[in-house]
Design a protein around this nucleic acid. Structure first.
Length: 271
DNA sequence: ATGGGCACCTGGCTGC
DNA sequence: TGCAGCCAGGTGCCCA
């Protein structure tokens, strides 16, 4: 699913439809998500105004007057703004009914997503507290990546997908960023040179930024808040391109499984 | 502390 | 056509 660019695209899409609006009702048609939706959640949020729509890592944060809704899209989730009378489809699990006549509709075939609520500071919520810096924020720089890679023997691809080290980078953009940085995904993290850590930081930031500009990557389930797909797929250099020629050197792109996830790279360009 | 593997769930696609 | 098997954008948890 949804990695940082898809979540950010969703956030930008829903923001103008929700901020300043009041929640009329929360309809939970299927509470069995990654974590069961609390039975008292509808009563707790009904009547509250949505103050802001934020994001932390891959979580969408809807800040209410008293508390914050934490929504995660999992692997296959999407959030759309639809008219209140739009017919429900398969896997439409949750509707947030707004006073505008629209609703936020959460659809998630695999139900790996989640909807949680906290009345405290969301930053200290157990699921957010241990999260690493944002890859597009100031604290994610070459010094930081250099420091956290020094003692680690894990493959660099697995390292950049570890949300305790850097958030937002999922399986697609990990492969893409490493191609851009010309680093092989299987390299031990501690073997990266100082210049390579700088290249990798720049590559991660550039790939994520470009993907946000394109509205994210749609492989199957993902659509933005207005129902349109993301267009970054056509810009992918390696992901899902096994056997196809590298866009730089024409060498066939390779695929292997690393940490139970598919990894793609160019054996010629990446060292 | 680090790292590996499993689990959670549904559905699309491939190949026999 | 049917069906088994594999694959998929995430990540918490358990174990070594």
């Amino acid at each position: 699913m949804p990695e940082l660019p898809e979540v950010e695209t969703t956030r930008r899409g829903i923001e103008p439809h929700v901020v300043g609006h009041c929640i009329r009702a929360l309809l939970v048609h299927e509470p069995r998500l990654r974590w069961r939706v609390a039975a008292d959640l509808p009563a707790r949020v009904a009547g509250q105004k949505i103050r802001a729509a934020g994001r932390r890592a891959k979580f969408l944060l809807l800040e209410l007057e008293r508390g914050t809704l934490l929504l995660h899209l999992g692997m296959s989730g999407n959030l759309r703004v639809v008219p209140a009378d739009a017919p429900r489809g398969k896997h439409d699990h949750i509707d947030l009914v707004l006073d505008s006549g629209e609703l936020l509709r959460f659809n998630d075939p695999r139900r790996f997503g989640s909807l949680l609520f906290t009345t405290g500071d969301p930053a200290v919520h157990p699921l957010l507290a241990a999260l690493a810096p944002e890859p597009l924020g100031d604290s994610f720089d070459a010094d930081y990546l250099w420091r956290i890679t020094r003692q680690r023997r894990v493959a660099v691809k697995q390292l950049i997908m570890n949300s305790r080290l850097v958030v937002g980078v999922g399986n697609i953009y990990a492969s893409e960023a490493l191609f851009r940085a010309r680093i092989r995904p299987g390299r031990e993290a501690r073997r990266l040179s100082r210049p390579e850590t700088a290249h990798l930081v720049r590559a991660i930031r550039r790939v994520l930024t470009n993907a946000v500009k394109a509205g994210g990557t749609t492989l199957r389930d993902y659509v933005g808040a207005d129902g349109t797909p993301g267009y970054f797929r056509q810009q992918l250099d390696v992901y899902k391109r096994e056997g196809q020629p590298c866009r730089r050197c024409r060498t066939p792109i390779r695929r292997r499984v690393q940490g139970q996830r598919a990894t793609y790279w160019c054996p010629e360009c990446q060292k």
